[in-house]
Nucleic acid binder design. Structure first.
Length: 259
DNA sequence: ATGGCGCGCGCAGCGCGA
């Protein structure tokens, strides 16, 4: 295989979106996709359907909220759920080694509002993620961190920055944590390339957000330097967002040359 | 436009997402 495609997609309920996922995998031949908001207990996870499509899968789920999974055409090894040493009942992190890469799938907390306990949790969570990844990067030079970050890193990632001042997803403390990831050497793969203005990955279900293109870029693929050197393209795939009953997020796909 | 929609749970209407 000349290229490897690795993707992230917040499916907002895997139960509802499984047909979209299977169709998308068949159409795109993606090698690895990290899922967020599966919202399913591990006992309910549709492992058989995904394996029947020719993929392996690792998952860490919970009922109603959160839940992450890594779907891969090649075997997954050294699967690890959660951030070591960080007590968290919420299933938001899953890491595995795939094709010589360390793949870290994250569903970063939303935060709700700046005065919320959930926001304080988000910042604590991000600090723990940063500290952990600093070590992981030393252990795994070929590392990719991908998922729903719930952070729009810059104003150009927001359809109307003025309207979002004072909100979660754009606050300075969150963006600082995002920059801390870049400061340890990770690259925002999307910005390695020329991209259209108004490149978004999420649109509110309300107010015809997608039709009016009122979106945010909050789903990201960060690459260690070694993987950034192999990255030849990164694209947002709006296709699944145009289907009936879509997720409010759309997939992001990075294309890497074979090692 | 202060909300709007979609999801899970569970069977009414609420919490949550972003």
């Amino acid at each position: 295989m000349a290229y490897m495609k690795i993707a992230t997609w917040n499916v907002n309920s895997l139960k509802v979106r499984l047909p979209h996922l299977l169709d998308w995998l068949a159409a795109t031949r993606i090698d690895v996709v990290c899922l967020q908001e599966t919202k399913q207990d591990d006992t309910k996870f549709p492992r058989e359907e995904i394996e029947a499509a020719g993929y392996r899968v690792a998952f860490s789920g919970q009922k109603t909220y959160n839940g992450v999974a890594i779907v891969s055409r090649t075997p997954l090894s050294d699967v690890q759920a959660g951030i070591p040493g960080f007590e968290d009942e919420q299933r938001r992190v899953l890491a595995a080694t795939v094709g010589g890469m360390r793949v870290v799938c994250v569903y970063i907390p939303n935060g709700q509002s700046l005065d919320s306990d959930k926001y304080r949790y988000k910042l604590r969570w991000l600090k723990a993620l940063n500290a952990w990844l600093r070590e992981e990067l030393m252990r795994y030079p070929a590392l990719v961190l991908l998922g729903d970050y719930n952070i729009a890193p810059e104003d150009r990632d927001v359809y109307d920055p003025a309207a979002w001042v004072g909100s979660v997803l754009v606050s300075e403390a969150e963006r600082e944590q995002f920059r801390a990831l870049l400061d340890m050497g990770l690259r925002d793969s999307f910005r390695l390339f020329e991209q259209p203005e108004k490149s978004f990955t999420w649109w509110d279900y309300r107010a015809a957000g997608f039709r009016r293109d009122l979106g945010l870029r909050i789903d990201h693929i960060l690459l260690s330097p070694q993987l950034a050197n192999r990255c030849v393209a990164v694209d947002i795939d709006r296709g699944p967002r145009k289907l009936e009953r879509p997720s409010d997020h759309t997939p992001v796909v990075a294309t890497l040359t074979a090692p």
